[in-house]
Amino acid sequence: MAGVNGLRPIRVAIVDDDPLVRTGLRILLGGFPDIEVVAEAGDGAAAVTMVHAHWPDVVLMDIRMPRADGLAATRRIRRGPDSPQVIVLTTFHIDEYVLEALRNGAAGFLLKESAPEEIIGAIRSVVAGSPSLSPAVIRRLIRQVADPAAGTRRDRARERLSVLTEREREVAVALGCGWSNAEIAEELGMGLATVKGHVSRLITKLKVNNRVQIALLVHDAELLEG
């Protein structure tokens, strides 16, 4: 199937235990020539098998499902080489499960009642390498979720970040603020290609999946406090 301008369409898989939700998403996505729904699954365990069989670019992942939930499925999917991006679907705006999904490697989340253009934009965004999660949402998630292990998590995050150079640390903090590559380049006086290089090195050095997880580490380390 050809996409826009002859390019291969974005391959999307839908994971939700509600057949009506899957049908609605399939119909919605089917209206865009640059997106192709290649597979569906009704629970997290089936989702892992499905990914290995169809190799989608993006997985739209529900959280609460039988057998294996979306958190476990996201963690298993994102461990693999060349793994697809995962966008978590949730009914709740602030949900401790969403934060855990981000820690497991998800590139962002959507509300199930999101406008069609938001869903399509999120899919295109994560394929392009940008998380589909606004800075405001990151801050609200972190601040509103009660975490009795915050002190331990802070110390561990600071230890992980201690391997960074001063410049890498500046870029990491900028990511924690939710800045785009262009904003980081302007604020820190770098070229855009240099910023992209720093972000790639941070992902490798910190052993994370994406820039969202870098931002979470910065928040865990409380580098933005005050």
Rank of each mutant, 00 (worst) to 15 (best):
D18F: 11
N5H: 11
T194G: 11
G44S: 07
A73V: 11
L206R: 00
V48R: 06
I203M: 06
A157H: 05
S114P: 01
E225A: 13
G226V: 10
P33D: 15
D62S: 01
G176H: 04
L7W: 06
S114N: 08
Q144S: 14
T152N: 10
E36P: 00
R158A: 11
V171D: 03
A53T: 12
A41H: 00
A149L: 13
I63K: 05
R64Q: 15
A53V: 11
G197F: 03
T194N: 09
R124G: 00
L110R: 02
L224M: 10
T152D: 11
E40D: 10
A150I: 15
L7K: 12
G176M: 09
G197L: 04
P9H: 02
P135E: 09
A106T: 06
R64S: 13
R78L: 14
E170W: 09
L133I: 11
D82S: 13
I14Y: 04
A101E: 02
G44P: 06
T49S: 15
L20T: 12
A106V: 10
L217K: 04
G80W: 10
I77Y: 08
V12W: 00
L192Y: 12
V163N: 05
V88H: 01
S162I: 03
A39M: 05
D17S: 04
M65Y: 01
H52R: 15
S162R: 12
R75T: 10
G121S: 09
P66N: 09
T90D: 03
E36R: 11
E96R: 15
P116D: 08
D43A: 08
R154C: 13
L188Q: 06
P66T: 06
E118I: 08
